[in-house]
């Protein structure tokens, strides 16, 4: 564990900072992909432009920015019934700190059911299969598992609802809206071929499934898409956590448990 001259520098293709002349620890200017963030982008750019450029080397086209903006709205609040928002509310209702409520939302919103991992896996599938229905059929039949992974083994095709009856109105509305911007090829194709696509999985498409496709259309890698999904779903968790705090824990559902099996074991 030795260090030489350059090991203490963080290397980045994305971000550059120039110091103030009187303080090497203060920033005079910060550039993202060459654009002056505080000198030029403030007041001129949209938040989605900034978000897009954090992950891509170029600024988004208007269609890409609009798609990202609509996707951000679609994902912003999964609603209190969603596991991640429920977890954040468990923090908020008992006065846990703001950051721990968001950590709870992240932890619970990270998994393979409607979470970041589901988007990652779905995006891997899109990378492998594209718009080839036969390839989809084969891949969904034999999803393969990663032995020794920290993730629980997948229990349903990613991007589809294991408990769903048919495509929900919300999913159809989001898909139709995003497809109209035509930022890529997958969304418009899927909007036309939804029935056939869902038949390959024998389950309806979910909102995280739509998010995966939109993120793939916007040129995000599966790793980036997972991050985006995690980030974009947090505002609702934050708002509901704040909302529950003044309502108090007595109004918040606690549930009832029913112990199974022998009630008490090993009692003397």
């Amino acid at each position: 564990m030795s260090d030489n001259e350059n090991t203490n520098a963080v290397r980045s293709k994305m971000w550059r900072e120039e110091p103030e002349p009187d303080n090497p620890f203060a920033t005079r200017a910060a550039y993202i992909r060459g654009y002056d963030v505080y000198g030029e982008m403030l007041g001129n750019a949209r938040w989605v432009d900034m978000l897009y450029m954090l992950f891509h080397s170029e600024a988004p086209t208007p269609a890409q920015a609009d798609t990202l903006e609509a996707l951000a709205i679609a994902l912003a609040n999964p609603g209190p019934r969603d596991a991640s928002v429920h977890a954040a509310m468990c923090g908020g209702v008992c006065g846990s700190t703001a950051a721990s409520s968001l950590m709870a939302a992240l932890a619970v919103g990270a998994g393979q059911l409607a979470g970041g991992r589901e988007v990652f896996l779905a995006m891997e599938n899109w990378q492998a299969c594209g718009t080839d229905l036969e390839a989809w059929q084969q891949r969904l039949m034999d999803p393969g598992t990663t032995p020794g992974s920290v993730w629980p083994a997948p229990e349903h095709p990613p991007g589809f609802d294991p408990h769903g009856v048919r495509t929900t109105t919300v999913v159809k509305q989001t898909l139709a809206c995003l497809a109209r911007y035509a930022a890529g090829t997958y969304l418009p194709w899927l909007n036309e071929n939804l029935d056939a696509f869902e038949a390959t999985a024998k389950a309806p498409l979910t909102l995280s499934g739509v998010a995966a496709i939109a993120l793939a259309d916007l040129g995000f890698s599966p790793e980036q898409g997972e991050m985006m999904h995690l980030l974009l779903r947090l505002p609702g968790a934050a708002a509901h956590a704040l909302e529950q705090h003044p309502l108090g824990y007595k109004k918040f559902p606690f549930g009832i448990v029913e112990l199974e099996g022998p009630e008490l074991k090993g009692q003397s």
Binding site: N77, G79, P80, R81, M89, G236, A239, H240, E243, L247, Y249, K250, K251, F252, P253, F254, G255
Partner: peptide, 15 residues
């Protein structure tokens, strides 16, 4: 035995 709510209360969100 404490009485807790049965539903989520919200003035933000309705489904």
């Amino acid at each position: 035995s404490d009485n807790f709510g049965e539903v989520f209360h919200s003035h933000i969100w309705e489904e």
